[in-house]
Every structure is written in structure tokens, then in C-alpha cells.
Nucleic acid binder design. Structure first.
Lengths: 113, 113
DNA sequence: CAAAGATACATAAGACTTCGATGTATCATA
DNA sequence: TATGATACATCGAAGTCTTATGTATCTTTG
């Protein structure tokens, strides 16, 4: 079952920041694959959503980029900045609090990973 | 701390369906107050989001409405339909699964309520 | 070796949702 | 009698995501 896109709304930046915090540097396509893998295919990032968001993160100064060539093929790597690391912590904490709040509202059990 | 609105995006319908499942019938303003109360003020539904969403639920056949007068003041009550009850279960389950997935991605602990 | 599928970037129009402001009106309280 | 709470609602603007499209390279398989 793939999650409805509505659910993922608002969490994309958080996911990207966290992945970049864990992996030092990643490129766009790699991110889509990693997320798919980590979520057993239940979250599939589309390029139309991913690239604009990565660009936005760059404009906000949360990531820096560097281009590498694999043969003739371009890869654009994204790396978290210090500001980005701080923001990542904020975002992840906010999401954790949000979930705690939603648990009360929806009266759900969240299974341990 | 009030949650950024982006986070609440995509969960509004789920929240509404769950509230209506628990409370049999509620009106709009009551919903905003109940949510504020249940979440210690951290989720504040705005009318601009609430009413269009309630109307959408009605169009989808998930809720029925009935108008009552308190003196001269109108109250529009919303009540969950059978379809709505089914949908509520689906939505709540989907959210629980989503959270389990996000826990893996973000590597977070979710405190028990 | 040709075709298909995967890798890899990106943009752009349209759809959808939410925000913030605005509007109307009643009721309670200071 | 004015303010704040109650109660409905809509609308333009803003923001985000989807779907489609575009370009190009690399790898695998028939």
C-alpha cells in the first residue's frame, strides 16, 4: 500500500534534511531510491516534487551543492549546511511532537519500528 | 509551540472523521474548540480550512448535516455516515502505518500519550 | 545491435489545499 | 455599550504536489 500523497505533504523537507544529515551527501535520484528502499516502497518521491524542494532548500541555505561527473553523466550532490543541521533537528522534533499530539487525537497505537 | 500548518495538511480530514466518530454529532465551531482543547492549543483549525473541508466531506457522502437553532443563532451539525465510519477507520489506520514508516525514516521515538 | 529500462537532471501547467482577511450576525459580560 | 466569544461562510492569494514533458546517458537483454 502506497501512502496517499496528502499524508506526505509537509514532511518532504523533513525527510530530505534527515537523509542528508545521515548520509553526508546524496544526489536526487539516490534520494528517491533510498526512500523507496527504507519505506518498502510505500513512499515514492516524484521528481516533480523532489527537485523543486531540493532547490528550495538550497535557496534557504540549508544545503550546498556540488556537481560531479560520472563519465558524461551529471550528478548533483546535496550536502547539509550547519544551518541545515539545526533546521533538521527542529523539524524532526516538531514531527515527533506532532505525532504525539495526533496519537491523542486519533487514539492510536504506534508500533515500534 | 503551535505546529506548522504544513504538518497538519493532509491530516485534517482524518481528524474530523475521528472526532465525529467519537462524538456522534458536532458543529464547526465546536470542532475547532475541541481540537484546541485536546491538543493543548497546538493545533488550531482555522475556519478557512475547516468549513471547506466539512463541505467536502458532505459532498463525498461521509457526513450528513442538520441545522439547529439556538435562539436565533444557527448551528450546523455534522454527523458521520456509515461510509464515513468506514473511511475513518481506513484513514486512521493509514495514518498509524504512515507514522510507523516515518519513525524508521526519521529515527524517532514517539512518546506514549 | 537495437530496444527497453534504469539512471539523472530539470521545468511547467494545472490542481488542490490552506492561509489570512473579510463579512454577517447573535449572545454574554464587564 | 463596547468587547469578546460564538457561529456561519466565502474569497483571493499563496504554497505545494501531480502529471506530463523534455533531454540525455548507461546497462542489460533478446
Amino acid at each position: 500500500m502506497i501512502f496517499s500523497s496528502e499524508l506526505i505533504k509537509g514532511t518532504l523537507k523533513t525527510i530530505l534534511l534527515k537523509l542528508l544529515a545521515d548520509n553526508h551527501k546524496m544526489y536526487g535520484y539516490e534520494i528517491t531510491q533510498r526512500v523507496k528502499e527504507l519505506t518498502a516502497g510505500r513512499i515514492q518521491l516524484t521528481e516533480g516534487a523532489l527537485y523543486p524542494t531540493l532547490h528550495a532548500l538550497e535557496e534557504e541555505g540549508l544545503v550546498t551543492t556540488e556537481v560531479e561527473y560520472m563519465g558524461k553523466r551529471v550528478r548533483k550532490y546535496y550536502r547539509l549546511s550547519d544551518t541545515g543541521m539545526t533546521r533538521k533537528d527542529e523539524k524532526v522534533n516538531e514531527f515527533a511532537d506532532f505525532v504525539a499530539t495526533m496519537k491523542i487525537l486519533l487514539d492510536i497505537e504506534v508500533k515500534p519500528a
